[in-house]
Design a protein around this nucleic acid. Structure first.
Length: 681
DNA sequence: TAGAAGCAGATTTTT
DNA sequence: TCTGCTTCTA
C-alpha cells in the first residue's frame, strides 16, 4: 500500500482509490471527511499521475477552502506542478467570469457587490415591498434561473408582480453599471456555458476530475453548474452528510444529495461512519435524535473513542439563571486548566446570546461572539474600500456616492439626489460631470467645490499609488479620516481598531504580493468574509449554523425549548430543525451540556416554555440521564426580583407548580404575577 | 443638513 | 426590548 494511504481506515481508503466515475462519500460528523478529500486529491496527483490542473475542488466557504488547500499541499509530494484549483463555488464563478463575461457583451472589469451593496441598491428603488422579501425573492429567482419576464408571468398577485418588475429594474441597473452580485457569480457562468456548448465542452475537458465538499448544501443552480462541468466526463466525487443539511431555508436542496445516484450514472456510495471526535455517550444521543427523521440516506455514527462523561441536561428557571449556571461551570473548567478555545456555547437564535453574554461578563470570562457583523461589511471598512475602488476607477459612481459625505462634508441626501439626476440625464459619470460640465451642475458652488476637492484628493492618491503602494496607504491614512463620518460613541474604539486591521491586512498583502495591484487586493477581499480575529483565551459563543465544521472539547447548547429549538415559525421544516440539533450535539468531543429554561424573555416579553421535543427524542428527559434541578418553590415572604418592577416580597402563593400565581408587594403596590416572571433573590 | 424622535419588525447566513 | 430605518424639526 502506498505511503499516502497509511493512516486511513478501509472505507476512507476505498473512497480515495475510487477515482473514475461518480462517487458519493457519505461522511458523518467527525468521520475524517477533510482528511479523505485532501488525501484523495493528493492521490490523484501523486499516485495516479493526473495533472493538478485537471482537477477542480469546490467548497462553500473560504475557510474550508483554505484548510483543504493547506492540508492538500502538505500531502502532495509532486512539486513540479501548479497547485490544484481549490476554491469556493463563488470564487470559481469569479475566475470564470473574468475570462468569459465578454461572451455576454459585458466588460471584464465588473464590480462585485456584496449583500450590503445589493440591499443599498434595492433600497434605492422605492416600493411597497419589504426589503427583505424583495432581496430574498430576487435571490431565489436567480437561483431558479428565472428571468424577470418569467417571474412576472408566474407572479400570483400584485406584490409578486411588483417584485418581478423590481427584479427586472435591478438587473438592468447592474448591467448598466457593470456590476455583478453574488448570485450572478453562479448564474452568469451557467448562462455562458449553456449558450456556448463548445466552451462548455472545453472547460469540462479541462477539469476532468471534480470534487465537491458539503454537497448537501448545494442548491439547484450549483447542481446544474456541476452538471455542465461534467458534460465531457462523469468524474465527480462529492462529499456530504444529508443529516447535516441545515441551509434549506437558503435554497440548499437536500434532494441533491438524496438523488445523487440517480443524477450521476453509475454512482457509487461509500459511507464513513466511524467517528473520531465524540464519546459514545454523545454519539448515542445524536444518533437517537436524528433517527426521528424520515428523509435520510441512513447512517449511524460509531464512536472510536469509547465511553466518557454522561451528557447533562441543565434545567433553569429562566435565562438569567441559565447563564449564571453555565458561567460557573465554565469557570470551573477553566480553573481545572481547560483551554478556553475548547469551550463553546451554541444557540439556535443569535438573540439568545445576550443573556449568555451577561452571565459570562459577570463571571469575568472572556468570550468571542462569532458571526455577527462580518468584517468586510462594517461601514467604516466599506467606506475605505470605496475610496480604494475609486482610486482604481474614478468613474465608479456607486462608490463615490457612498463616500461623498464620509467624512462629513455637508453634502446630504438632497444634494446627492440632484447630482445623480443630473448625471443620469446626461448618461455620464460624476467624475465626467465635474471635469467637463462643472458650470452646468445645478448645485451651490460650495458643494461643487467639495466634490471637486474629493476628486483632487483621489487623483493625488492615484499618482502616489503609481509610485509606491505603501506610500499610497500612508497618504490615504493622512488625508482621509473616516472616523469623522461617525457619531462619537463607545464603538469608535472598535471602528478604529477595524480600520487599523484593514490597513494591516493591506500592508501584509502588498508585502506578500509585491507585484499585485490595488485592484487585485480589492478582488481578493471582496470574496472573503472574515478576518482572522484574535480569540486567544476566549470562550466561543455562536449560532448552531456557524458551528458547522467545528469541534469543541466542552460544549453547551442552550435554549432547548419548544418554539426556540425547534424554532417554530410559518415555514418550519422540523426535519431541518432536527438536523440542526444533530449538528449542535456532534460538535462536542468530551463534554456536552444541554440546557433548557422554564421561561425566557424575548421580543419584549416573558414567555413560559415547554421543554424541546428533541430532549425527549434523544432520551435526555426520560429519567435515564442525570437531572440538575434547582428548587423553585415560591413561599410567602420570599424576596423576588422582577425585570420591570424590581425587588418585591411575596404576599401569597395561589397554586403550586411551574407557573403558580404570586401576589407580590413591590414597594407598597401589590401585583399578581406568574412565577415564571420573577427570580428568587 | 444633521440630529432627534417615531415606528415597524425582529430565524438561521456564505458568497 | 432592541435595532435600524424613516420622518420630523431646528
Amino acid at each position: 500500500m502506498s505511503e499516502i494511504l497509511q493512516g486511513l481506515n478501509p472505507e476512507q481508503c476505498e473512497a480515495v482509490r475510487q477515482i473514475d466515475g461518480a462517487l458519493l462519500i457519505l461522511a458523518g460528523a467527525g468521520s475524517g471527511k477533510t482528511k479523505t478529500l485532501t488525501t484523495r486529491l493528493a492521490y490523484l496527483i501523486d499516485e495516479v499521475g493526473i495533472p493538478s490542473s485537471s482537477t477542480l475542488t469546490l467548497t462553500f466557504t473560504n475557510k474550508a477552502a483554505l484548510e483543504m488547500r493547506t492540508r492538500a499541499l502538505r500531502l502532495i509530494k509532486r512539486k513540479d506542478c501548479a497547485p490544484p484549483l481549490l476554491c469556493t463555488f463563488h470564487k470559481f464563478g469569479l475566475l470564470f467570469l473574468k475570462l468569459h463575461i465578454t461572451l455576454l457583451n459585458r466588460k471584464a472589469n465588473f464590480i462585485l457587490l456584496d449583500g450590503e451593496d445589493r440591499k443599498r441598491i434595492l433600497r434605492g428603488f422605492k416600493s411597497s415591498v419589504s426589503l427583505s422579501l424583495l432581496n430574498s425573492e430576487i435571490s431565489r429567482y436567480k437561483n431558479l434561473l428565472l428571468d424577470a419576464k418569467s417571474a412576472l408571468q408566474y407572479a400570483k398577485d400584485s406584490t409578486y408582480k411588483e417584485i418581478a418588475k423590481l427584479y427586472g429594474a435591478y438587473n438592468e441597473y447592474l448591467a448598466e453599471k457593470n456590476m455583478v452580485d453574488s448570485d450572478d457569480l453562479l448564474l452568469l457562468p451557467y448562462q455562458i456555458l449553456s449558450q456556448n456548448p463548445a466552451l462548455c465542452a472545453e472547460i469540462s475537458q479541462k477539469y476532468n476530475y471534480i470534487m465537491v465538499d458539503e454537497y448537501q448544501d448545494t442548491n439547484d443552480l450549483q447542481y446544474k453548474l456541476l452538471k455542465k462541468l461534467c458534460t465531457a466526463h462523469n468524474n465527480i466525487c462529492v462529499v456530504g452528510d444529508d443529516d447535516q443539511s441545515i441551509y434549506g431555508w437558503r435554497g440548499a436542496k437536500i434532494q441533491n444529495i438524496l438523488d445523487f445516484a440517480d443524477n450521476f450514472k453509475g454512482a457509487k456510495i461509500i459511507r464513513l461512519e466511524k467517528n473520531y471526535r465524540s464519546t459514545a455517550e454523545i454519539l448515542e444521543l445524536a444518533n437517537r435524535l436524528i433517527a426521528f427523521n424520515t428523509k435520510r440516506l441512513g447512517k449511524e455514527l460509531q464512536s472510536t473513542r469509547g465511553s466518557g462523561k454522561e451528557v447533562v441536561h441543565l434545567e433553569s428557571l429562566d435565562e438569567r439563571i441559565e447563564s449564571t449556571q453555565i458561567a460557573s461551570r465554565i469557570q470551573k473548567l477553566l480553573e481545572n486548566g481547560a483551554n478556553p478555545n475548547e469551550i463553546a456555547i451554541l444557540f439556535r437564535l443569535n438573540a439568545l446570546s445576550r443573556s449568555i453574554e451577561d452571565g459570562l461578563n459577570k463571571a469575568n470570562i472572556p468570550y468571542k461572539l462569532i458571526g455577527t457583523t462580518r468584517f468586510y461589511e462594517r461601514a467604516e471598512i466599506k467606506d475605505i474600500l470605496s475610496y480604494f475602488r475609486l482610486v482604481v476607477n474614478l468613474n465608479d459612481d456607486f462608490s463615490f456616492l457612498r463616500i461623498i459625505n464620509r467624512p462629513k462634508r455637508g453634502i446630504g441626501k438632497a444634494t446627492q439626489d440632484k447630482l445623480s439626476a443630473f448625471t443620469q440625464n446626461r448618461g455620464i459619470s460624476i467624475y465626467e460631470a465635474i471635469t467637463n460640465f462643472k458650470s452646468e451642475i445645478p448645485l451651490p458652488k460650495k458643494h461643487i467645490e467639495a466634490i471637486w476637492g474629493i476628486f483632487e484628493l483621489l487623483k493625488l492618491l492615484r499618482e502616489k499609488l503609481a509610485e509606491s503602494t505603501l506610500g499610497f496607504l500612508d497618504l490615504f491614512k493622512e488625508r482621509v479620516n473616516i472616523l469623522d463620518a461617525f457619531d462619537k460613541s463607545q464603538d469608535e474604539i472598535d471602528r478604529e481598531a477595524n480600520i487599523y486591521e484593514l490597513y494591516g491586512s493591506f500592508r501584509d498583502f502588498v508585502v506578500q504580493n509585491p507585484e499585485a495591484s490595488l485592484e487585485d487586493f480589492l478582488n481578493d477581499i471582496s470574496l472573503s468574509s472574515d478576518s482572522d480575529e484574535d480569540a486567544r483565551d476566549c470562550v466561543f459563543c455562536m449560532s448552531v449554523h456557524s458551528s458547522k465544521g467545528l469541534e469543541f472539547e466542552h460544549l453547551f447548547v442552550i435554549g432547548l425549548e419548544e418554539g426556540f429549538f425547534p424554532l417554530v415559525g410559518d415555514s418550519t421544516d422540523i426535519e431541518e430543525e432536527r438536523r440542526l440539533g444533530y449538528v449542535a450535539m456532534t460538535r462536542a468531543k468530551s463534554e456536552l451540556v444541554i440546557s433548557s429554561v422554564k421561561s425566557r424573555f424575548y421580543k419584549g416579553k416573558r414567555t413560559a416554555l415547554q421543554k424541546s421535543r428533541f430532549l425527549r427524542e434523544c432520551g435526555l428527559v426520560s429519567g435515564a440521564v442525570r437531572f440538575e434541578k434547582k428548587s423553585e418553590g415560591f413561599k410567602k415572604n420570599d424576596l423576588v426580583m422582577h425585570k420591570i418592577f424590581g425587588a418585591g416580597r411575596i404576599e401569597s402563593v395561589s397554586s403550586e407548580g411551574v407557573n403558580s400565581k404570586l401576589k407580590i408587594n413591590f414597594g407598597g403596590i401589590t401585583r399578581e404575577i406568574l412565577s415564571s416572571f420573577v427570580v428568587k433573590v
